[in-house]
């Protein structure tokens, strides 16, 4: 807990809101195909859902929800996932980041590109989430698990 006022109202509102913010973030990541959103905005929303408990709840509770190691881990995994999805078409003869070159039985090339976009958005969301949580953890001095 960082706030100067240990206010009950702030704590209750943040504890109630943060799961919904998390869910909205997941929705924004998954809904990037059909509406505004995608990895960047969704990752920020998910990060806010993880950071709000850190600001208002007792420390051990907040760190049990999202441990401090989640920041660098999610950032690295997200970037790695993006690079893996980018190199996958290279292995089957396509060019870098050209998901349509990957042939999956029963799926058209456009559908494969659709799925590629989904994976890339999720990877970007993970990376942004990790970066934001890492910065907040380091700023508050709680960077060691």
């Amino acid at each position: 807990m960082i706030g100067a006022y240990p206010s009950v109202v702030v704590r209750v509102v943040c504890a109630l809101l943060s799961p919904f913010i998390l869910m909205f973030g997941l929705y924004v990541v998954a809904h990037g195909h059909y509406g505004p959103g995608g990895g960047f905005a969704g990752g920020v929303f998910i990060a806010v859902g993880a950071i709000l408990p850190r600001l208002t709840l007792p420390e051990e509770l907040a760190y049990r929800l999202v441990p401090p190691a989640a920041g660098p881990l999610a950032g690295g995994v997200g970037l790695l996932l993006f690079l893996l999805v980018g190199t996958l078409p290279l292995l089957v003869g396509g060019s870098f980041l050209d998901y349509g070159a990957v042939e999956i039985a029963g799926l058209e090339a456009s559908r494969v590109r659709y799925l590629g976009i989904l994976v890339v958005e999720a990877a970007v969301g993970l990376a942004v989430f990790g970066a934001m949580v890492l910065i907040v953890d380091v700023l508050t001095g709680k960077d060691r698990p």
Partner: peptide, 12 residues
């Protein structure tokens, strides 16, 4: 198959 062109531009 992505209606939102911004997303298909950014991610594809």
């Amino acid at each position: 198959e992505t209606p939102n062109v911004v997303t298909s531009l950014l991610a594809d």
